[in-house]
């Protein structure tokens, strides 16, 4: 069933042969979408809970769960949901910006300069991907505590953005490697400085890869809950994942609230994902495909 690349010539198959892939793709797509549809059903089932049926549409659609999730306030009247959404947005946004700035410059140096320590740096970044999170959790907690950054967004931003740097650096370096060096060489002849080349030539050319790595940084920060759960103790300081996890905690399980808040939390990040989606292949694999 291995086919040639879809740019190749050939006669279009007709009849059942053209239908064959769809017999496979339609069921697979349905299985893929089913859990998502089921979350929507749960969220729309109101706060009383869904009935046990496999059909992914609620019997009595209601927006009660959304209202309950979105209008939550604490004892002081603080609009918790708004605060938590804002926390998540600020933390993820700042993480992305900080992480990408540091990763871009590092990746550029790794891709374009030969300097002692380059290999050690690259391998060190690779090794961080193998560090089990639990090993660094305890020292990080103490460090953040000593800095007085528990229950603050700054603490999460610092930790998230540094955790994102190694993966982003590797991905971006792979992409920078594929850009022809001749462009830079002619720019140097024209009298451009390294910084000018980096900012005016390399960065614009790498927009797809930067978009993809930015997406991953954003997703990682938006979805993280173990560190957030450890660092944050006040409800008003929570990010959305901590709140969502708490809806289905050990004592109190509220699946409809979980589903409603999950949908609200998933929509922005899925929108971003699909906005960047067409660059996924090029941005991620450019370095690897080059071989």
């Amino acid at each position: 069933m291995a086919g040639s690349g879809h740019g190749s010539s050939g006669v279009a198959p007709t009849g059942w042969q053209a239908m064959l892939p769809h017999f496979l793709l339609i069921p697979v797509s349905v299985i893929t979408l089913y859990p998502v549809l089921y979350v929507i059903k749960l969220a729309l089932s109101g706060t009383s809970g869904a009935t046990a049926s496999a059909w992914p549409w609620p019997d009595h659609p209601s927006l009660d769960a959304f209202a309950k999730v979105a209008l939550r306030t604490d004892a002081h009247g603080t609009w918790l949901f708004g605060r938590q959404l804002l926390n998540s947005l600020i933390v993820s946004g700042a993480t992305t910006v900080l992480g990408i700035v540091l990763a871009c410059t590092a990746a550029y140096a790794f891709a374009r300069f030969e300097f002692p320590g380059r290999r050690a740096g690259l391998l060190g970044f690779l090794a961080t991907q193998m560090f089990p999170g639990i090993l660094t959790l305890i020292p990080l907690y103490v460090l953040i505590q000593k800095l007085g950054l528990l229950d603050s967004m700054l603490g999460l931003i610092l930790v998230y953005s540094t955790t994102a740097i190694p993966f982003c650096t590797w991905t971006l370096k792979g992409y920078f490697d594929t850009l022809p060096k001749e462009i830079e060489e002619s720019a140097i002849i024209d009298g451009a400085t390294r910084l000018q080349i980096f900012v005016r030539i390399i960065l614009p050319l790498s927009a797809p890869a930067i978009a993809v790595t930015a997406l991953f940084s954003f997703m990682a920060a938006w979805n993280e809950f173990v560190l957030a759960y450890t660092f944050l103790s006040q409800e008003a300081a929570y990010t959305l994942p901590v709140q969502i996890r708490n809806y289905v905690g050990d004592k109190d399980v509220q699946w409809s609230l979980f589903a409603a808040s999950s949908l609200i939390a998933a929509v922005p990040v899925m929108a971003l994902f699909y906005a960047v989606e067409k660059h996924l292949v090029g941005g991620l694999t450019a370095g690897g495909v080059k071989g």
Partner: peptide
Amino acid sequence: VPYFYVGPAILATGLLIFVPFAVGV
């Protein structure tokens, strides 16, 4: 010049990834 480019990233990961890792060990 190369160290100006990698410096900030190395410093950040060093402080918030490698030092906690070493402390964990």
